[in-house]
């Protein structure tokens, strides 16, 4: 599969939309896709600091209650909890649902 098609197919898939058990690879960070009151650039930096950066493999381990929010995500060797609102800023390529 060529890269462009691959990206096009997955355009708009965000970490915030994934369900428990899903595995994916992070392809981009896009703050504008999330609702946040943080200053511009701040959410992106915080996500990177917690290991949510391009190329990282992730897996959704747990979902909160109610409305399956927040989510606990396995990133590398750590488990990070975040809300779906912020997870929307993380664009992913699905590996397994």
């Amino acid at each position: 599969m060529r890269t462009e098609t691959g990206l096009a197919m997955n355009a708009g898939v965000s970490l915030g939309a994934l369900r428990k058990g899903a595995q994916a690879e992070i392809v981009a960070l896009d703050e504008t896709a999330a609702t946040t009151t943080l200053d511009t650039g701040e959410l992106e930096r915080r996500l990177i600091e917690m290991g949510l950066v391009e190329g990282a493999r992730i897996e959704i381990l747990h979902e909160g209650f109610p409305r399956r929010d927040p989510i606990a995500v396995l990133v590398g060797d750590s488990t990070i909890a975040l809300r779906r609102a912020e997870a929307n800023a993380v664009m992913v390529r699905r590996l397994k649902d």
């Binding site: 609702t35 009151t37 959410l43 917690m50 990070i80 909890a81 975040l82 809300r83 609102a85 912020e86």
Partner: peptide
């Protein structure tokens, strides 16, 4: 007012 601080917390 203002949305909540992000959770972004390590378990």
């Amino acid at each position: 007012t203002g949305a909540r601080e992000p959770l972004l917390m390590e378990l």
